[in-house]
Amino acid sequence: MIRNLLPILLLMSINCFSQKYTANDGEITFFSYAPVEDIKAINKNVSAVYDISSNDIIFQLDISDFNFRKKLMQTHFNENYLESDIYPKANFIGKVIAVEGDKAKVKGLLTIHGITRDIEATGALVKKGDFVKILSEFKIKLEDYNISIPTIVMYKIAEEILINIEVELDSSE
């Protein structure tokens, strides 16, 4: 009987020791560099959670929280390209697979526009007291996420989009 309970107790103790860091005001910016026009949008309501014991790391955001300088672009982004009424959220669910000083590597599943892809990215992961700061930059391809920009649209969008992440998480316990 005790033997049977042991793993359960063990698991419970693991959960107790796990230390989680969360944020709901992280910033994700994306850039499209194209000859005609550079496009940039920023989302300041990014949620993130990092479990230091299991190395699980998750980012999530609402597509409609991206702010563009040109509001019409924001309309097209939401209504036509990212279709935020059907796919309101984008997220990354993965693990920190390597840490070397302040540098870290993550691997996991990135879901945008309802399409999930494996990705790997490197960045900075700095732990300071009750805070963990995460910085990263990586590129994604629009076609990987089935985001097509019709030719009728006059502004040109780069095929590769640069994503910049800056999140400060604090201890949730």
Binding site: T22, V49, D51, Q60
Partner: peptide
């Protein structure tokens, strides 16, 4: 655990 982590931030 990943599901429950997600629920922490599903705001």
């Amino acid at each position: 655990s990943q599901e429950s982590l997600l629920s922490l931030i599903d705001g």
